[in-house]
Amino acid sequence: MTKAITVSGLHKSFGRTHALDGLDLDVETGEVHGFLGPNGAGKSTTIRVLLGLLRADSGAAQLLGKDPWNDAVELHRRIAYVPGDVTLWRNLSGGEVIDLYGRLRGGLDKARRADLIERFELDPTKKGRTYSKGNRQKVALVAAFASDVDLLILDEPTSGLDPLMEEVFQECVREEQSRGRTVLLSSHILSEVEELCDRVSIIRKGATVETGSLAELRHLTRTAVSAELAGPPNGLSGLPGVHDLDIQGNRVRLQVDSDKLDAVLRSLTDSGVRTLTSTPPTLEELFMRHYQDEVRTEEAMAR
């Protein structure tokens, strides 16, 4: 079993800007892989390198076992790409554009095209200039999902879609997965990521900071604990992995790295627990932490 995408140590600069700084990415065949990171982290640059539109300065990248730059054309028969901001030609109809992309990829499933047009409620006879943002997105999505390909690369594909269409999009991605296709999904809509992705990679400043299943990622983050104790707490501050400790009389609030929860609970029960709430981090908190770290380090550097 080959991996669908393997990237290691990818570097790319534009003049003095280092867009990619040793990025790694592994996507298993048949999985839906979330690709996350704050604006400007290098997601779109990575995708452009994977599509052979940019040539990496150094590092290795393989798609479906081939080189994205040298084998671009052969590879693209098996890839469908949806950008976050689709531009259409003013005087071509949506249907014409869908068929064009079908021809330019590995071919188009006619029945599936008709089905998708109906589900996305798209009027394929309208000219490019008359489509709204969401409808332009739908043209690209129909073209991608109706194409006969092995790998879908979706770069914020649902921007501008309404919640109903977002639902249709998620169904389509699941159908693609059940057919054994691989999906790389870059998105800022966390509910979408949580709903669809088997694994995610979080990148920041051109490098991968975290990768794994959502469960694994949760494990790496902190749990919020607040407790009311029978007596004053004891030795909590000395425990590893405890943060933001706040003790007021017998009340304790703290954050603890999820894998260090055991020791904290033991210490708390030693003092006698009256009430205890423990909140696992929400996905939002998880990402905010990764996204905000950047801000914090920048602030620290500025000081």
Partner: peptide, 9 residues
């Protein structure tokens, strides 16, 4: 960009 993501040399 989208065109070149397909089979376009």
């Amino acid at each position: 960009e989208m065109l070149s993501s397909a089979m376009v040399g």
